[in-house]
């Protein structure tokens, strides 16, 4: 039983990362019905920008907390901007084209980001500064590190902030309206292209936050990290019902738990098989994901 709780703690920590990245997939899908294959790589780029700033600031005498803040702000802002640029260059011109051509440009962007980072930083692993340590506390034999707690709290806080943004602001309401009916949204005076850009910014912003946290948590990053994590985050988005924001949050945590239990009780070699089988099983029983999708099917 103790092992079970230990796996749960680990699962929730990584599940928080998955959820943050899954939100980007689900928001973009909800609005323009695109599976943004480059999204996992934005997560990776976020981690690399954060690393670069942290390593640069390591030479100065800036206090650690301040350095972290600067790195986080830089990474989140530039990754958000990257999301907007990707949308403008590779997606907007193709919104009216066949759906698969935009999927291919998404794959192209993904490859370009991975290989771009590979060219700049090389193929090896880079080490994040060890800022978090392994200190923690124990409840009933279950070890919980401060790092895990912090990560989980930050993830939840970001998700809550997003929830408020989407439900309490004009822009957020416009996003939800856009997902229902683009033409009707235009008739409200909503600049659809601009809202799409904001969506890309917010999604990429959250992904970069997850990227930096993953770097700080595992202390190792590499150009390929976005692919694996992106795959699981995408799975999480679908599991929760793609297009559904609370669904993506729940799906992310669920995939984190599944992965942790799978690795703990079965074998880490079979984790992905386990995760995918659960996903396919869920979709066969409930084709719109666990929480249904926010899509109005019109006749």
């Amino acid at each position: 039983m103790q092992a079970f709780f230990q796996f749960t703690v680990e699962g929730l920590t990584i599940g928080g990362f998955y959820a943050l990245v899954a939100l980007g997939y689900t928001m973009v899908y909800g609005i323009i019905r695109l599976i943004n294959f480059a999204h996992g790589d934005v997560f990776m780029v976020g981690a690399f920008i954060g690393w670069t700033v942290l390593v640069t600031l390591a030479g100065t005498h800036l206090p650690i907390v301040l350095a972290l803040f600067v790195a986080l702000a830089t990474s989140l802002f530039f990754s958000g901007a990257l999301g907007v640029v990707i949308d403008r260059v590779a997606y907007q011109p193709l919104l009216a084209a066949p759906r698969l051509s935009i999927l291919i440009t998404a794959l192209g962007v993904s490859l370009a980001l991975e290989n771009g980072v590979l060219l700049i930083y090389g193929p090896g692993f880079l080490t994040y500064p060890h800022l978090l340590g392994t200190a923690g506390f124990t409840i009933g034999g279950v070890q919980i590190s401060y790092a895990q707690t912090t990560m989980f709290v930050i993830s939840l806080a970001l998700m809550f902030a997003l929830y408020l943004f989407v439900h309490r602001t004009f822009i957020g309401t416009a996003m939800r309206a856009l997902a229902v009916d683009q033409d009707a949204a235009r008739l409200m005076g909503i600049d659809v292209e601009r809202i799409i850009q904001i969506t890309f910014f917010v999604g990429s912003f959250l992904a970069a936050a997850a990227g930096m946290m993953e770097g700080l948590y595992y202390t190792q990053i590499n150009f390929y990290m976005g692919f694996l994590l992106g795959l699981r985050a995408f799975t999480a988005a679908v599991l929760g019902g793609i297009g559904n924001i609370p669904g993506a949050m729940a799906g992310g945590l669920l995939i984190g738990l599944l992965e942790s239990y799978g690795a703990g009780y079965i074998s880490s070699r079979w984790t992905d098989v386990f995760v995918f089988l659960v996903l396919i099983g869920v979709l066969v029983v409930k084709p719109t994901g666990l929480f249904g999708e926010r899509v109005v099917e019109r006749m």
């Binding site: 260059v89 590779a90 193709l94 051509s101 935009i102 440009t105 192209g108 962007v109 993904s110 370009a112």
Partner: peptide, 10 residues
């Protein structure tokens, strides 16, 4: 190759 792919699709 990746850039070429994007440009060709555009």
């Amino acid at each position: 190759f990746a850039i070429g792919l994007i440009v060709l699709m555009l």
